[in-house]
Write a protein that binds this DNA or RNA. Structure first.
Lengths: 241, 241
DNA sequence: TTAATAGTGTCTATTAGACATTATCGT
DNA sequence: ACGATAATGTCTAATAGACACTATTAA
């Protein structure tokens, strides 16, 4: 970013450059468990393995714009909670060529998750098991809807691990928990989301108090419909962070 | 990372690629305030402005390796606490050419900070003021040792802001606070580091209890020397995270 | 002895978990 | 009325801030 850059500017072909891609972790919940939308690779390398949807970053396209484009092209979604996760640049992460990828985390509510599945039949909803009885997270296991463990392509297992850790870490000081829920939700649904991500059970009264005290949610006055028993109050996410 | 990549593999020159660089936020403390080591740009663009040390990522070099190399070449340091911060890829962030940069945070203790300064006379220790009376952080102000506000090159102000926010966020659940101190330190020094990064004052007994209860530090039995008054116990950082 | 800082004891306010209880819905 | 879940009250344990106090060193 100083003299070197200036010199290179005179001859843009002087150095061999890595390719730059974005890869998206499209994350939602499926039957109360975290799930990501993956594509099965048709060709070598890693043919048959499962990969994150991604694409090259255009020369006149910002990283964020590229992520939005991939979200649209591969998942058919116009928008989602999208945040940059981490960049992966091991030299041999792709055997064909040098690729640096900027991974993004895309959080989908139930509706968006279903829409993406309906719009692209190549996408498979893959359940993510994270053996984090402890606290440090750990290597994740991706399973097909039938429960079979799947092989992941490239370093995409590492990227999925990073996504789950990020989600976990940001859960109680950011709005990531709400991004996985529809506009209006019950406190039980919100607690289910937190429990799915943290991999623990939570104390109900304490959870309610925390959420209400933080000022993040407001009662709508409306209630669930079609429940067999007492319907729960519907809440909505409210700005103050 | 799928079909597109495969096709491109047959013709690596088919698409125009961004250049990829790493930029380092070399962060230490100077007189109890956070300070970064910056270089003044000699040439256009942004001649005279202050920039983070950085360099291109080699075609056969991982991102982390590139960061270590820049740490060595620009700061003369063999090692430091180094962690990836965020990637910046706005299309016009450099007016000469498309450059995607992966920013790294390098934390230097007093010794490393002084060594870097002594080894490269182009580096200037720039104090970072962050007006974060509140909680969200904010645009930082870089000041020369004399106190003059400095103009920063490119989007490097944004990168510095990200670095300070990261540091703040990780302070009480990671070892970043210790990376800014020598191997052996007093509890007062540790508290000073935390106060500098958080921009607040902390309660002494509570701080001591927290640090000791977490099991992160252990007394060495040795004490400060050369103090005018009662010398403080020296502690050292101890693994359990 | 004194100045100055290191280090601690204790009280209180806040917050979270445990557990039981009350409230309210559809049938 | 009954079954089932929503929502809440209250007790207790853990944690952090406030503040005063004791300890230890050099001069």
């Amino acid at each position: 970013m100083n003299e070197d850059a200036f010199l290179q500017a005179y001859d843009p072909a002087a150095y061999e450059r890595p390719s730059v891609t974005v890869d998206l972790v499209l994350l939602g919940l499926r039957e109360g468990r975290p799930a990501a939308l993956l594509l099965q690779r048709a060709d070598h390398p890693h043919a048959g393995r499962w990969a994150l949807p991604g694409g090259f970053v255009g020369i006149a396209e910002s990283l964020d714009d590229a992520a939005v484009r991939v979200l649209r092209e591969k998942a058919g979604l116009p928008a989602a909670h999208l945040e940059q996760l981490y960049s992966f640049g091991a030299v041999d992460r792709d055997p064909r060529m040098r690729i640096v990828t900027i991974a993004y985390l895309a959080l989908l509510d139930g509706r968006a998750f279903a829409d993406a599945l309906a719009g692209n039949s190549d996408l498979l909803p893959v359940t993510i098991d994270v053996p984090w009885a402890g606290d440090a997270g750990g290597p994740i296991v991706a399973r097909s809807p039938a429960g079979t463990p799947l092989d992941l392509a490239f370093d995409h297992g590492e990227i999925l691990s990073a996504a789950m850790l990020r989600l976990r870490g940001k859960l109680d000081y950011s709005n990531v928990g709400f991004a996985l829920l529809p506009d209006r939700f019950t406190l039980r649904q919100l607690q289910d989301v937190h429990e799915a991500i943290l991999g623990t059970t939570l104390n109900k009264p304490a959870f309610r108090r925390r959420m209400l005290d933080k000022g993040w949610i407001a009662a709508t006055g409306a209630r669930e419909e079609g429940t067999a028993f007492r319907p729960a109050e519907l809440y909505r996410f409210q700005r103050p962070l």
